[in-house]
Computed example of a mutant assay.
Amino acid sequence: MQTDHAAQLAEQQKFFAESSALSTTEEAQILERLKQKQAAEELAPTEGNARIKEIYGKQRLMRSEVLLKMKQLKLI
């Protein structure tokens, strides 16, 4: 993903260097928004993995509680 982001950023910078349609300030704002979007994209999998671990942790706890209750009721 980082390679794609670097290529995307380089392509955008090259376009700005060859174009005079936008001011330097506008170009800088666009590049900053692009960098922020890329940073958010890189965080998304990390946040998703954390949520998955949270769900598995809850599932394990529930399973342990069920097993304990079954033992108490002498079902296992």
Score class of each variant (00 low, 15 high):
Lys71Ile: 03
Gly57Ser: 10
Gln59His: 14
Leu9Val: 09
Lys35Val: 03
Leu75Phe: 06
Thr24Asp: 13
Lys37Trp: 04
Lys71Asp: 12
Glu42His: 03
Ala17Ser: 08
Phe16Leu: 03
Leu9Lys: 11
Leu75Thr: 06
Gln2Asn: 10
Lys37Glu: 02
Leu61Gly: 10
Lys35Trp: 02
Lys71Met: 05
Glu26Asn: 11
Gln59Asp: 14
Lys74Asp: 13
Asn49Pro: 01
Ile55Ser: 07
Lys14Trp: 10
Ala39Cys: 04
Ala39Gln: 11
Arg60Asn: 13
Pro45Ala: 03
Ser19Met: 10
Thr3Tyr: 00
Leu34Asn: 00
Lys35Cys: 00
Ile52Arg: 15
Leu73Pro: 06
Gly57Asn: 10
Glu54Trp: 04
Lys69Asn: 15
Glu32Asn: 12
Leu75Val: 09
Ala40Met: 13
Lys58Ile: 01
Leu68Lys: 10
Glu42Val: 12
Leu61Met: 08
Leu31Glu: 05
Gly48Asp: 15
Met70Gln: 15
Gln36Arg: 04
Tyr56Asp: 12
Ala28Gly: 05
Ser19Asn: 12
Lys71Gln: 05
Ala21Lys: 03
Gln12Met: 15
Arg60Lys: 11
Leu75Ile: 07
Gln59Val: 14
Gln29His: 11
His5Arg: 01
Thr24Val: 08
Phe16Trp: 06
His5Asn: 01
Met62Val: 13
Lys35Gly: 00
Ser20Asn: 10
Lys58Thr: 05
Thr25His: 10
Thr46Gly: 04
Leu34Val: 02
Leu43Ile: 06
Gln36Val: 04
Gln72Ala: 05
Leu43Ala: 14
Met70Lys: 13
Lys53Val: 09
Ala6Gly: 01
Gln2Val: 09
Lys58Met: 04
Gln12Asp: 02
Leu67Tyr: 13
Met1Trp: 01
Thr46Arg: 06
Glu41Phe: 11
Gly57Glu: 04
Glu11Leu: 08
Ile52His: 13
Ala7Asp: 02
His5Ser: 02
Ala40Arg: 09
Ala40Trp: 10
Ala50Ile: 11
